[in-house]
Simulated assay, not measured.
Amino acid sequence: MRQATDDELLRLHDEIRSRRLARTKFLRLDDAGKRAYKAEKQRQRRAALRAAGEAGKPKATVPAIRDVLADAAAVLLRSDGHGADVIRAALAEAFQAPAMGMTVTGMARTGRLPPRLLPVDWSPVPKAALPSAPDLVPDAPVADVLDDLDGFEPPAFLRRSGY
């Protein structure tokens, strides 16, 4: 295990102290000062989110995640991919309108549902074919395998559990 140097410990102490001072300064503010402080922090947060989005790497906030899920659902509806029927059923249930799934599918196909975060031409890339599963059928007959288990004593933890 590495030991921290004196300089590292002093830097850590200074960081903790500065955070503690910032917190106590906030606690000493009156209501108007707290509102102004929070408003400024919210402006900074929104500016950072906007800058990240413009840079092409949006932060994973709940609204951004919902937007990506909505974009992916629109792509599935547009291409009639796997799961499109589930999305149509969810739309029909949510809006209590049986034809809503087909209406939204038409909107997705005509471009009336533009994506918010995914590129317009995005489509799911099919995964490469997975290697086939190993053969799970034993080469030896089951009776031969069971004969090999004669005299086998299970470990104590299995005996106590009832297996």
Rank of each mutant, 00 (worst) to 15 (best):
F95Y: 15
Q3S: 12
L136H: 09
D148N: 07
M102G: 11
L10M: 10
P63T: 04
G83M: 06
G83R: 07
K41Q: 14
K59F: 05
A94P: 02
R45T: 09
R159A: 07
R160N: 08
H82W: 06
R43I: 04
R43S: 10
I16H: 14
G106N: 12
R28K: 15
S123T: 12
G162F: 04
S161P: 00
V142D: 10
A97P: 00
D139N: 09
V62C: 05
A51F: 03
D139A: 10
A60R: 15
L76Y: 01
A156Y: 05
T103W: 04
F157H: 14
G33S: 11
T105C: 01
E54I: 00
E15A: 15
G81Q: 07
S132T: 09
A74Q: 01
I16R: 15
G162I: 02
R160D: 07
A32W: 04
L12V: 04
A73P: 00
A39T: 13
A22L: 12
A39W: 12
A64Q: 07
Q42K: 14
L113Y: 08
L69R: 14
L130D: 03
Q44G: 12
E93R: 15
K127G: 04
L91V: 04
A22V: 04
D150E: 12
Y37L: 05
M100G: 01
A74I: 00
A55L: 08
R11Q: 14
V125M: 09
T110E: 09
P63N: 05
L12D: 13
I65Y: 04
L146S: 00
K127P: 02
